[in-house]
Amino acid sequence: MATIDANKPDLPAAGAKSHPLYWKNRGFAHHFRNADEQFDACKLGMWLFLTTEVLLFAGIFCAYAIFRMLYPDAWAAGSHHLDWRFGGLNTIVLLFSSWTVASGVRAAQMGNNAALIRNLVITLICAGLFVFIKLYFEYIPKLSAGKAPGTFFSYPYAHDPHEPLWWSVYYIGTGIHALHVLIGAGLLSWVLVRAIRYEAYGPTEYTMVETSALYWHLVDLVWIFLFPLLYLIH
């Protein structure tokens, strides 16, 4: 089997960390010329992937814009049901987590594993907090009041016949975003486990931290657009 056999540096002398995932033991895949080239390739790949994510959400934003134009009253009525304080709180939570994940990358570059772990844990707590606020203070009360998407809509005091469509766009937009929050949290948990168990990241090996953090910033960025469109504009 053709493998991605790595060009590995000499393992450090006995007594030092000997696990292959320890950052000083990491090599690079044989089809790259050096570790820097591999890092650049991974980063470029991640940026391209983020481009596709932006275009994916672009579809939802486009649908939002079209229906806002077609049914302005339904959009105004719908957004009045959203509490800007929860949206705002979640915005702060995500912005803060973007800061901590960026600090985590910095910590990995500086070889400060403890700071990396600390920052990742805070980021993950923020991710959990975001999903909790979304579910507990927003989705569940709204769904139980009948403010549900499409055919499930049963809210008796709707002002506009097109409010179900508003809720469809709201749930699809925030739902796909929440899914991305969970995926991002999954990636960062993976990074965290490797940081704790193998001390896998350091000045010469932090590709995974960097790319996962990039993904996390995208999750943040999408919310930065969703929040004003859904909560603030009436």
């Binding site: 994916l56 959400f57 579809g59 179900p164 469509l165 469809s168």
Partner: peptide
């Protein structure tokens, strides 16, 4: 650059069939 757009489109179509979200169905606005 183009494929993600069909991704979200077909996803919305799937939601449309499953949940009648009404984004593409003129009967639902």
């Amino acid at each position: 650059l183009a494929t993600p757009v069909i991704g979200i489109t077909l996803l919305l179509l799937i939601f449309e069939r499953l949940f009648k979200v009404g984004i593409f169905d003129p009967g639902l606005g």
